[in-house]
Structures are given as C-alpha cells and as structure tokens.
C-alpha cells in the first residue's frame, strides 16, 4: 500500500562489541519504516534508543540479521552513497579547531563536494537554507564551543538537514531546547516528512510532544521493540509504563 520501505530491519539482534564480547541490547527486531512518517522512539534511559539509531546509519553493524536502506543491504552501500541517504544527529559534543556553526552545517554538504571540499554556489545555498530553517542566521559565524547547548543542538540538526537525505535520524534532539524551540523542531520534522516525503526517526523523552507531532511510535522495553500508532499509545501497556503514570 505504501510501496517500498525506506528502512527495513529483519530478524536483527542489535548491540555492540566491548573487548571482544557481544553485548546485545535489542533482539528479534523486525521493523519497516516508510517515507512520510515521523516515528518517535520512546524508552527509558539506556534501553537502546541510541544503539538502534546508530545501527540504522551504519555506525554500528547489527550483531545478527540485516538492515536494508531503500531495499539495498546496508553493508553493500558505499559510505559515500550512504551519506546521501541517512543523516544522524547524535548527542555527542564536538568543538575546537576554530569550528564555527557555518563550518559544521557546511560539513553536511561534504558528500556532494569535490575532493578538495570546495563549496560552490549551489552548496552554499543549501547550507544557508539549513541555517535559516534552524534559526541560526545570527549565530552562524560563532565558534561552536561558545554556543549554548540549545544552539549547538540546532547546529547539528542543521548539519543533518544540509545533508539532504531522505532519512533523518535524531537522537534526543530536543534535550537542550527551550519550550518554543522544541515545538518548532517537531513542527519542522513533521513538515519535512509530509512535504519532502522524508522518513524521520526521532528519539525523545518529551512524550507529550511525540504524541502531538509523530505519526507512529516505536516503543522499546526489555530488549524488544514494537511499533504502534499514536492512537494506540493510550492503551499500550509498555508505553504507559514508560510514561510512569504521568501521561
């Protein structure tokens, strides 16, 4: 009914390796994500939200099973091509080396520049647009380690937008944002999904926002994940447990 899944995970066990030993965080994962959806990932701290997102952009290989992006096995996609398909916003801090907001956002266009990383007019326009959409215009020439946490967060989101990928993965992007910016961000994500037909996966602890703006919710509990619609959330036991009785 919806055509081919943007992301498809089959029989996967996800996790990471620590000094040789496999640590599995999620198991029996079989999920399909489609274009036009904003999927909110919910789960308690340390449940594997980041592991899932890092797997979906190729930073962590699945321990078992397979991940396909637009029908193609992730392991068969060249890194330079994958960079044009999946962009990620992580929680880690970067900075130093004179990096400005503009520089970080410009890095999002790196998959499209020549081998000397020369920014041409078309690249600059995309970077400019990403900066404006995230409300960073007056901050674009500031050093990023002089930015507030919220502005830094917006910078990384702008970088992901500048990457112009059909798939956007965001790991707790709303953590440091002020109330209005949180709503702005989710509105933007919803607009990108509907107007530009992107597939957006966003993890967050702002459950009320997820309920308000997402089209689906991925609930993660005890190494298992299941996809529900927003309407089902009110009756989903796992979701209610994550809400801690406050939802």
């Amino acid at each position: 009914m919806k055509g081919e899944a943007m992301i498809s995970i089959k029989n996967a066990r996800l996790g990471y390796k620590k000094s040789g030993a496999e640590i599995s965080v999620l198991k029996n994962i079989g999920l399909d994500f489609y274009a036009g959806d904003v999927i909110g990932i919910v789960g308690l701290n340390g449940v594997g939200k980041s592991t899932l997102l890092k797997t979906l952009c190729g930073l962590l290989p699945p321990l078992d099973g397979e991940v396909r992006i637009e029908g193609e096995l992730m392991t068969q996609i060249a890194l330079s091509e994958l960079a044009k398909k999946v962009a990620i916003v992580l929680t880690e801090k970067i900075g130093g080396f004179n990096l400005t907001t503009f520089d970080v956002v410009a890095a999002g266009q790196m998959p499209y520049t020549n081998s000397f990383n020369r920014l041409e007019k078309k690249h600059k326009e995309i970077i400019k647009a990403a900066i404006e959409v995230c409300g960073l215009k007056e901050h674009q020439f500031k050093l990023i380690n002089e930015l507030s946490d919220g502005l830094f967060q917006k910078t990384i989101i702008a970088k992901a937008l500048a990457q112009q990928t059909p798939i956007l993965l965001l790991d707790e992007p709303s953590a440091f944002l002020d109330y209005a910016s949180k709503h702005d961000l989710f509105l933007l994500l919803k607009k990108l999904a509907i107007k530009e037909n992107k597939c957006v996966l966003v993890s967050s602890h702002d459950l009320d926002l997820l309920l308000k703006y997402c089209s689906k919710l991925l609930v993660i509990e005890e190494k298992l994940a299941h996809l529900i619609s927003v309407d089902e959330a009110k009756t989903d036991a796992a979701f209610l447990r994550i809400g801690g009785g406050f939802i």
């Binding site: 880690e92 970067i94 990096l99 970080v104 890095a107 790196m110 990383n117």
Partner: peptide
Amino acid sequence: LLFFIKPINALLLGQNYAQNIGIN
C-alpha cells in the same frame, strides 16, 4: 596529504559524524 583534504576536515567532527558524512 592533498588527497586527504576531505577526510582531514571531516575528522574534526569526530569518528561518528565523519563516517556519517561519507568518510571511511
């Protein structure tokens, strides 16, 4: 080193982001 201008610039963002923008 001229062949590594892109990786060198990408490495400033750390391993994860460098990889996500297409750098091995």
